[in-house]
């Protein structure tokens, strides 16, 4: 680091020889920044002004500024409805399952992959496991439909051939936490394991060689070398994911369930609720209010969890 600063001063000196040159460089850098800064302003900062809709009785024909203020009425409606507890619980509970199972299986895959000696095999397995990550939830919903379709689905045929009861899965809520967890793992485990695998690659080989000399077995090595060296990155990924626990993967909950009303008790999460309140119910005010709450709580969570992860590892975290 110290070396770096020494280099930097050495570098700036020739340009500083003429102040005009340095000034010119600043202007050039700012001109590069102009387009991205403008785009972020339009598509990220301008919508923040629209949050005032949360405090208004929004009417299309009056627009944002013409609509009447209504105080906290939108928030009151939301908190008084049964939906508040339901969607908050569903979001937290399902995201918790995704995080716990997701990290566990990603670790297992990474640790096992690390033991595979043939490079070509590692690459092939990684490719296959990552592939689902690149499918849209729409395409995945077709695959799921292939299994769960009440008339033609593979699962029902299988159950029938074994003489068991068949179900209309799209109106059987108690099956869905499992289905969603399985899908979340199937889609993300390959990508998540890349990170752990990369961390494993950076473990000093001499540790394993020393363990070999001491006669340590495979599982002893995993228990005493592999896992301890992964602990920091496990904690950090967990913390960062918990920071986002109030944000649900809209595609998963909307497409895979085929937006089936019979499943809402289990599968309705904050993001699907916001969408439905806006699109189907048309209550712009309340939808904005719920989005605003989610945004604020989410922001606080991310800041807190980032602080925490930095506490554990100064290099970790987003900022």
């Amino acid at each position: 680091m110290r070396l770096n600063t020494a280099k930097k001063t050495a570098m700036v000196r020739p340009t500083r020889a003429s102040r005009g040159a340095l000034h010119k460089n600043q202007l050039q850098l700012y001109s590069l920044l102009a387009v991205p800064v403008l785009l972020v302003f339009i598509f990220c900062y301008l919508p923040m002004v629209g949050i005032i809709i949360a405090f208004k009785d929004y009417r299309y024909n009056s627009g944002i500024f013409g609509s009447k203020w209504c105080g906290l009425k939108n928030f009151e409606f939301f908190f008084q409805s049964d939906d508040f507890l339901k969607i908050t619980w569903n979001t937290l509970y399902l995201n918790f399952l995704f995080i716990a199972f997701g990290i566990f299986f990603a670790l297992v895959v990474a640790i096992m992959l690390y033991d595979v000696k043939k490079r070509a095999a590692v690459k092939t397995f990684q490719t296959v496991l990552i592939t689902p990550y690149f499918l849209s939830w729409v395409v995945v919903s077709y695959m799921v439909y292939g299994f769960l379709s009440p008339q033609n689905g593979l699962l029902n045929s299988l159950l029938q051939s074994m003489g068991m009861e068949t179900f209309d899965w799209y109106s059987k809520p108690d099956a869905w936490p499992t289905i969603l967890v399985v899908l979340s793992i199937w889609k993300n485990v390959g990508m998540d394991s890349v990170l752990y695998y990369a961390a494993l690659m950076s473990i000093d080989d001499s540790l394993f060689e020393a363990a070999d000399l001491d006669g340590a077995g495979r599982f002893q090595k995993i228990l005493h070398i592999t896992i301890p060296s992964l602990v920091p990155i496990i904690i950090i990924t967990a913390i960062l994911k918990i920071g986002n626990i109030f944000r649900a993967d809209f595609g998963l909950f909307y497409q895979i369930t085929r937006d089936s009303g019979a499943l809402y008790d289990v599968t309705d999460v904050i993001d699907t609720y916001i969408f439905r309140t806006m699109r189907t119910v048309g209550n712009m005010g309340m939808s904005t209010a719920v989005g605003f709450l989610q945004g604020v709580v989410g922001m606080v969570m991310v800041i807190l969890t980032n602080k925490l992860s930095k506490h554990i590892d100064p290099d970790a975290g987003l900022f």
């Binding site: 900062y45 301008l46 916001i274 989610q294 945004g295 989410g298 991310v302 987003l318």
Partner: peptide, 24 residues
């Protein structure tokens, strides 16, 4: 400037305000 970009990862206006901005 970094923070200007970074903040948008922390917080956003949400679905409805973006929708109204883009359509109206």
């Amino acid at each position: 400037i970094s923070f200007y970009f970074y903040f948008t990862m922390l917080f956003s206006g949400g679905m409805v305000p973006s929708y109204i901005l883009i359509t109206q």
